[in-house]
């Protein structure tokens, strides 16, 4: 469980996060949604300490991350896996070396054990036969999978994903979502996913946090989201004219239009 208490973050005099409080629950996919520029990436980076919070705190199972020595942070970092928006694979290494890197750096496994673990993780994300390729020789969807494999190789307790399915076709997106959802349940991880993909929200949003201009505008589950009564949220979900009309239609007018009005 990760508790976020009144987190604020400013760059210069620009306040990007304006006091966000929430709880990320274990064994669940916690989704952070919001428009582009609403502060999702900054929020994620504040949680993992890539950005120092201006004020407030982030507490990992009782351990206050924002007031920790570097050494204690390193300890928590080995419990964190993260998938970056752009993949962030090491492009001087092969796929296998990428996934093996955390094992090489932080464990004393034998090369046989490492190989087994890498193969297991690659298998888990449904990738085979790409071990010796370089990241630039794989597709965007594959890079996300490789990123996930690298993120889970040390069995993290906390998994952070920044837009895991941006730039992917709907079918591949759903496969990635299912993968993340399965992994989360299987290993009881606390998973935090940034997304603006409504398919993901409906598919796996056990818990959804809606950020709007750096504030938590709404939180709830995917079952409640369509009837939140929150204007900003509705504006975000029903973004296209078509969906707006469709929504009105459900409430009456669209049906009339169709009927030949």
């Amino acid at each position: 469980m990760i508790e976020i208490k009144e987190v604020r973050k400013s760059f210069g005099d620009k306040e990007v996060l304006r006091g966000v409080s929430t709880v990320m629950e274990p064994g669940k996919a916690n989704l952070v949604i919001g428009k582009s520029g609403s502060g999702k990436t900054v929020f994620l980076k504040c949680m993992v300490g890539l950005f120092e919070v201006t004020s407030g705190s982030v507490v990992y199972d009782g351990r206050d991350f924002s007031r920790m020595s570097k050494k204690e942070r390193t300890k928590i970092r080995t419990e964190i896996g993260m998938l970056f928006q752009g993949g962030a694979l090491f492009d001087s290494m092969t796929v296998e070396e990428n996934i093996m890197f955390p094992l090489n750096m932080f464990t004393n496994m034998t090369s046989g054990e490492k190989q087994k673990r890498v193969d297991f993780c690659l298998d888990r994300v449904d990738l085979k036969g790409v071990n010796d390729r370089y990241p630039s020789e794989t597709s965007g969807g594959m890079q996300k999978r490789i990123g996930i494999a690298r993120a889970i190789v040390l069995n993290p307790k906390y998994l952070f994903c920044d837009e895991p399915n941006s730039g992917l076709d709907p079918r591949t997106s759903i496969l990635i979502d299912e993968l993340l959802s399965d992994i989360t349940k299987e290993y009881k991880m606390t998973t935090i996913i940034n997304t603006h993909d409504m398919n993901s929200v409906m598919e796996m949003g056990d818990k959804v946090i809606f950020l709007h201009f750096g504030e938590k505008e709404w939180e709830g589950t995917n079952k409640e989201i369509l009837n939140s009564g929150n204007d900003e949220l509705n504006d975000f979900i029903f973004a296209s004219k078509f969906l707006k009309e469709l929504r009105k239609g459900v409430q009456g007018s669209y049906g009339k239009d169709l009927a030949g009005g």
Binding site: L50, M82, S92, F101, M105
Partner: peptide
């Protein structure tokens, strides 16, 4: 160039997250 690329494509952040 190598480090700049690593910084901008978030590879340095990825290392940092791992605890390196």
């Amino acid at each position: 160039t190598e480090l700049g690329t690593m910084r901008i494509s978030e590879q340095i952040d990825a290392l940092e997250i791992m605890g390196v």
